[in-house]
Nucleic acid binder design. Structure first.
Lengths: 241, 241
DNA sequence: TAGTGGTCTAGACCACTTC
DNA sequence: AAGTGGTCTAGACCACTAA
């Protein structure tokens, strides 16, 4: 119990929601009633309620009242980073190839650019303690002397480098699949047809323009990547954009 | 651009953050300065700033100022539900067995109960259009005539039934693994050693007491489950508990 | 028309940081 | 001492909902 009034109110209401005293769809006491109950003003009550709303516990309908949310129980979140959230620590990245590609329709579709543009393909191997951990292919529009391409070529962990600068400006999406390796992957990861690997497709978009910045495929042996996720009540993170 | 002042302020500041005009660690104009700039009062400025803070864009240090967050770029969220967020729609659940177990140490550890207690094991098959989609084993402490056990036995989608009532009171954690099926799974899912399946371990806890309510293992053919996740800026969802 | 939530004002007082 | 963020008050006015 905090000595700050609005936090006390938040804590009280939250407990009643968690204990099941209020059920989804139930209406809370009106703001006027809460003002009287806690002997305070509207702004303090509203501060408490807006905190509960931002955490996904309640929502309000103007003119009607504040209601208990139906909690979103199917959303899970997990931590993932190709370079430093694995079961091992990537300590070396080896550049395998850099190619200017044409005429690979599937990549043009992923990058959402016309086939008149050029695409640069970068392939790399990721090591930990001299063991091959993962193999990745990065595709991005080829723009002569663009800083990103330069960065990818020069630095191992390219996204980390620019991340601090542009992180709020980008949006990342992943698709994870468990498959048997194809010939190319078997060769690079030095695995057999009896191994299972994860393919992680990553699309990075500019949040503002919605344009695709890069598309990449990441191949990793299953034993190096654990997927553990925990439920998160937050419903909408994109409402603010 | 909204006609609501605090939303206009939010929108302005957000744009400057997304455009990279403000960088992580930078300090915002002081609240007094913003009051003058927007010709408004402290409470309105603070309402705007608290919205930005709740969305993970800024944080404040009392006595110093408001700062741009270092965005959390490694957190992804995805939607998952054993029964209705798959690539197919589960339309039938067949109860296979119900057993009272003793002496399986690994399960006692997962459920965090002493070995003097009894455990109930429920196994079920999930179907879609008469095709076997998944197999699951649910473990929970056996409490005679407890409503949960009754529900699991009586109803297919047991967690759905009690979800609305207790969702705010529980916390779910998943571990996803891609493996080759063992003999038991091969038999139930009717798959061969050349198939890849996902094993999803689920632990449900009471948020209040932190006690484990149930532990379950869910086996599904990879083709019926796609894992797609998108980056979420939200850092802390548990701060409120 | 009465009640509800939503926005906003113009102050007050506090604790903290910096100089 | 001056500036910063943090809490809180006591109103005002608005739009919406329901009887």
């Amino acid at each position: 119990m905090s000595d700050v009034l609005y936090l006390t109110i938040v804590s009280n209401l939250k407990q009643r929601i968690i204990k099941g005293e209020y059920k989804p769809g139930d209406t809370l006491d009106s703001e006027t009633a809460l003002m009287k109950k806690y002997n305070t003003t509207k702004m303090t009550i509203r501060k408490a309620l807006s905190l509960l709303a931002s955490k996904g516990f309640i929502y309000s309908i103007p003119g009607k009242g504040n209601y208990i949310c139906k909690p979103e129980t199917n959303i899970y979140s997990f931590n993932f980073n190709k370079y430093d959230k694995l079961n091992v620590q990537i300590d070396r990245i080896k550049l395998l190839s850099v190619n200017i590609l044409n005429a690979i329709p599937s990549i043009y579709i992923k990058l959402q650019i016309p086939e008149t543009e050029s695409i640069i393909e970068i392939t790399r191997l990721l090591f930990s303690n001299n063991k091959i951990i993962a193999y990745e292919k990065i595709y991005t529009q080829y723009i002569h002397k663009s800083p990103m391409v330069e960065d990818i070529l020069k630095f191992a962990n390219y996204i980390k480098l620019i991340e601090d600068e542009i992180a709020f400006a980008i949006e990342k999406q992943l698709k994870i699949e468990a498959v048997f390796p194809d010939e190319e992957t078997k060769k690079h990861l030095k695995v057999s047809s009896n191994d299972i690997i994860y393919i992680i497709d990553e699309v990075i978009k500019n949040l503002d323009s919605k344009k695709v910045i890069s598309y990449s495929q990441y191949f990793i042996k299953t034993k190096y990547l654990s997927i553990t996720a925990s439920q998160s009540f937050i419903k909408e993170t994109k409402g603010i954009y």
